Simulated assay, not measured.
Amino acid sequence: MEYRGRSIVSPLRLRNYSAFDYEEYKRIYEECFRDMRTALQRFPVDCCDSKEELEHKKDKIYILEIDGKLVGSVAIYDNEIDDLIVGKSYQRAGYGEALLQFAISHMQSNNISPIVLHVADWNQGAIKMYIKNGFAIVKTEET
C-alpha cells in the first residue's frame, strides 16, 4: 500500500526502543502476529527478532507508552512503515491509528516519499484502517 493522503502533524511523542523493552515488546509482537501467521501457515508462528537484532534496529523502532506501560510500537525502515503493533488489551481504542499517523508525520517531516507498507489480505481490519487513513492498494503479491 502507498500513502496518498494529506500532510499530517502527529501530537504523539514516542521514544525509541531499548533493550529494557524486549520482553514486553516480544510478548505484544507475537500476540499481534500469531493468529495471522497460524492462518497463513507461516512458521515459526512466534517470530520476534532476538534482543540483539532489535538492539541494532532501535533507532527505527518507536514505542508508545501510557503510564509506564508499553502499549504499542511502530517501525520505520527507509520509506516503509512496518511492525505496527498494539497490545490486545489496548486494541480498538485508536492507538494503532495514532501510531500510523505518527509514522506518516515523521516520514513527511523528513521528506521521505513514497510512504509504503505491506499488509496481508488476511488482515482486513488493518487494511480498512490504512485505507481510512489515506493509503491505497498499489500492488498485490502472492507468497
Rank of each mutant, 00 (worst) to 15 (best):
G68N: 11
G134R: 07
M36D: 09
Y95M: 03
S50F: 12
R37E: 09
D35H: 08
E142L: 15
G5N: 10
I115E: 05
D21P: 03
Y25E: 02
I127P: 00
G94A: 02
A136W: 08
M107G: 06
K128L: 08
N110A: 14
I131W: 02
E97S: 11
D82C: 11
D59C: 07
V116M: 14
G94Q: 05
S50L: 13
L40E: 15
E31G: 07
D49F: 13
F135G: 02
L54K: 05
T143E: 13
V116N: 10
F135T: 04
F135Y: 08
A75I: 10
S109V: 06
N79S: 14
S73E: 03
S105P: 04
Y77G: 03
Q108C: 12
F102S: 03
R34W: 05
Y77W: 12
Y130L: 05
I104C: 07
K60S: 14
G125S: 07
D67K: 13
A126P: 02
L40I: 13
I85K: 00
T38L: 14
T38D: 09
Y3I: 09
M107R: 07
S105R: 07
Q124R: 03
S109I: 10
L100I: 04
R15G: 03
I76A: 09
V138L: 09
R92S: 06
V86T: 02
L117A: 00
N16Q: 08
E23K: 11
I115L: 14
K57H: 11
H106M: 07
K139Q: 14
G87N: 00
L64D: 05
K69Y: 08
R13V: 15
D35C: 05
L12D: 06
M129H: 01
P44M: 11
E65L: 06
E55I: 12
P44T: 08
L64H: 06
Q124E: 07
A126M: 07
L100G: 00
R34M: 03
V9A: 12
A39C: 09
W122F: 14
S10V: 09
G96W: 05
L84R: 00
S50K: 08
K51D: 13
D35A: 15
E141W: 12
G87K: 00
N110P: 06
S109F: 12
F33H: 04
R92G: 00
E31D: 15
A98Y: 05
E141A: 14
F20R: 12
S89C: 04
S73K: 01
L99F: 09
L64Y: 15
A93V: 01
N123D: 10
S50E: 10
E53T: 11
I66T: 10
D21M: 06
G134H: 05
I131K: 13
R4V: 09
V74Q: 05
G72D: 00
D67T: 04
A126W: 01
I76Y: 05
P114S: 05
A98E: 12
R6Y: 12
A136L: 11
P114A: 08
N123R: 08
D78H: 12
L100V: 03
K139F: 08
G125C: 01
C48Q: 09
A98D: 10
S105K: 07
N110M: 14
E142V: 15
K132R: 13
N133E: 06
M1I: 08
A103K: 00
V74H: 06
Y3P: 01
E80F: 13
A136C: 11
G134M: 09
